[in-house]
């Protein structure tokens, strides 16, 4: 065989390196996939045990409002109604998103359209700082400031969905704001120029073109914020009152999926119904965060198609 042909047939050094790189990244990816799959499998197997081993009806789990897994009711059935927690979780999530969105959009408009200089100098660092504060600090402030304030104004204990909403509002505001800022900055300059050249005022340009073009990005930010609020445990647990009861109003003690999980998981025996029921809540949480993810992807795709 002539030497050139031999050299062509032999795999070069860089081809070998390439092969090795591929193997390493493949290994890392499979590890991540395995870990995620294991988590899913573990949570699902535990969470589903409530329904298969303990014969709890799925529908009554989702729709009944009495949560005391340790005590059977008059018919000898376990009482695992998760409705109070579901209502609590969705309540604080939606309310905090509803309150945070206008503030976030307002702040983002200020930072990108009205005073970018001040936005960069003052607001940007503040927002980054807010993102970095651990949730226990938010919870502590909620406990020592928000709860007493609510007690003072509305009476009652002060614990409840309102307090939870307020703490979560402050917690997700920076996330939603910075994602909205990114979305507004991504709107090309020539859209703004076209609008102004057609006789648009600055405000008309912002409200009719910039916000509209940035809408998919803003919605993604809001859903991200909601996902964060839905999954937040500690800060909410500190202010919501932790009563697994269907809340009558915004200031009666309530609970969320996460708050019941964190306060209960250490006090139950692995394999018992009490423990399994908590895993069912965890499974519900996992499925919901999956749903949030799907929504985010779906919004992203819709935004792309419009382009």
């Amino acid at each position: 065989m002539d030497p050139i042909k031999a050299a062509m047939l032999k795999r070069s050094r860089s081809a070998k390196l390439e092969q090795r790189g591929k193997l390493i990244s493949l290994f890392c990816i499979s590890l991540i996939v395995i870990v995620v799959a294991a988590i899913f499998f573990f949570v699902a197997s535990r969470g589903l045990a409530t329904f298969f081993d303990n014969k709890v009806n799925l529908w009554s789990f989702l729709s009944k409002s009495v949560w005391s897994p340790a005590v059977n009711d008059a018919h000898g059935n376990p009482q695992v109604g998760a409705l109070p927690m579901i209502v609590g979780s969705f309540g604080v999530t939606f309310l905090s998103a509803v309150v945070a969105t206008p503030f976030a959009v307002g702040a983002a408009i200020f930072m990108t359209e009205i005073s970018p200089k001040m936005g960069k100098k003052i607001l940007q660092p503040v927002i980054e700082l807010l993102v970095g504060i651990p949730s226990v600090v938010y919870g502590f402030i909620g406990l020592s400031v928000v709860v007493p304030a609510i007690r003072h104004v509305f009476g009652g204990t002060g614990f409840g969905i309102l307090a939870g909403t307020f703490v979560l509002f402050v917690m997700i505001l920076p996330t939603v704001t910075s994602m909205t800022v990114d979305a507004l900055n991504a709107v090309p300059r020539y859209y703004r120029e076209a609008s102004l050249a057609l006789g648009g005022t600055r405000w008309q340009t912002i409200s009719r073109v910039v916000l509209r073009a940035a809408m998919p990005g803003i919605l993604t930010g809001v859903v991200f914020g909601m996902a964060r609020a839905f999954g937040e445990a500690l800060a909410v647990q500190m202010v919501i009152g932790n009563a697994a009861l269907l809340p009558h109003n915004l200031i009666s003690p309530a609970s969320t999926l996460t708050s019941v999980l964190t306060s209960g998981i250490g006090n139950t025996v692995m394999g018992s119904l009490e423990n399994n029921a908590l895993w069912s809540l965890a499974l519900l949480l996992l499925l919901m965060s999956l749903a949030f993810n799907l929504v985010i992807r779906w919004i992203g795709k819709k935004g792309e198609m419009k382009r």
């Binding site: 020539y190 859209y191 076209a194 609008s195 073109v209 509209r212």
Partner: peptide, 10 residues
Amino acid sequence: MVFQQPNPFP
């Protein structure tokens, strides 16, 4: 005004 790059709104 009409610009160099076509810039219809989305």
